[in-house]
Amino acid sequence: MLSKRIIPCLDVKDGRTVKGVNFVDLKDAGDPVELAWQYAQQGADELVFLDITATNERRKTMIEMVKSVARQLNIPFTIGGGITSIADAEALLNAGADKISINSAAVKNPQLIADLAKVFGVQFVVVAVDTKLVEGRNMVHLNGGRLITALETEHWIKQAEESGAGEILLTSMDHDGTKQGFDCQLLDSISKMINIPVIASGGAGKIEHFTEVFTTTGVDAALAASVFHFGEIPIPHLKKELKKHNIPVRL
């Protein structure tokens, strides 16, 4: 049986992990390699690194970071942030990334999804979608929810699947940061609508939220950042609780 995946998400700036991280036994909370290794030891199934560097040096720094992570990590990881071309993706693949995640670049140039899938295979291409409810409709947003697009979330995700996305990372901006739980209604309708895996993101605050998203929706994975970084939800504990609810997990 396929396990439901638990995915910590790490923000990276200039090759360093940002946001406060509160692991007792961590020597350097800004070191992506050490942090990634710790998460793997705790039982994370996969990691996502989101590059938020805004300088021209970003690509070079990121490649170096990806290589260092790949040397040490024995679980899969995805790189997102600023990927706009085949060349960007290829450099990350060769540095050891298992998947790449594209967001605004795909909205601006939907052909990019098909191009990436053709060259690297669908398993390499995660399409990240930020969604927000506007006047009763789920609309795709960019720039962390600040910029609305003309795309309806359901339509865009369907289009992404047809173009060759191998997985959808769906973040509900209405739930993100609230710690009030995932957007289970939307996540369920999306995961029923498409035939590729869906990663739920936005709103995780406590263990019950993970139980809820896995028992009431068809999502394949759940992603969170702060609840893991601050040690509010230790991953081994979370997985034991999920198991109690008969949710298949890797222990």
Binding site: L2, Q123, P197, A221
Partner: peptide, 28 residues
């Protein structure tokens, strides 16, 4: 859902390749 992506348990037959790996272990 396709691709089959993630950790799945496997049923192992007695084989040297899986020496020391417990039956039903999950692989990626």
């Amino acid at each position: 859902k396709i691709p089959h992506m993630g950790w799945n348990n496997i049923e192992i037959k007695n084989n040297l390749l899986f020496e020391g790996v417990e039956n039903q272990t999950q692989f990626y």
